[in-house]
């Protein structure tokens, strides 16, 4: 399993042709207390950069973008009832969705953990 990171602060863990997507610890910290999560419909096809989900804090709504093209296979419905999980375990239990990898080449454009860490330090 390999994990990649986007400049929009999503992480994507790839195993075979399935990928799990969520938001990073940095993103949840910037958002603050998450009060609402909106997930896509299963079977929806998204392109890289499309809005895949919405996460709202007390203060504002933010989009979660699809880091690569693909079809939504599964969503983490537990976040709907317990949105605060996004603050507690953003890079673990609070994954947003699983998708079928539509274009593996796009993963090369993303960052690995070290590159993402360095990127966050520039912000």
């Amino acid at each position: 399993m390999t994990t990649y990171y986007s400049k929009d602060h999503e992480w994507i863990s790839v195993e075979g042709d399935t990928a799990t997507v969520g938001i990073t610890a940095y993103a949840q910290e910037q958002l603050g207390d998450v009060v609402y999560v909106e997930l896509p419909e299963i079977g929806k096809t998204v392109s890289q950069g499309d809005e895949a989900a919405v996460v709202e804090s007390v203060k504002a709504a933010s989009e979660v973008y699809a880091p690569i093209d693909g079809e939504v296979l599964e969503t983490n419905d537990s976040l709907v009832d317990e949105p605060a999980k996004v603050n507690e375990d953003p890079e673990g239990a609070a994954w947003f969705l699983k998708m079928k990898v539509g274009n593996a080449d796009q993963l090369k454009e993303l960052m690995d953990a070290d590159a993402y860490k360095a990127y966050v330090e520039t912000l």
């Binding site: 603050g32 207390d33 009060v35 804090s57 007390v58 203060k59």
Partner: peptide
Amino acid sequence: PVQYPSGIMSEH
């Protein structure tokens, strides 16, 4: 200051 480390919810 928009928020302190404890966060908006707990401050509220």
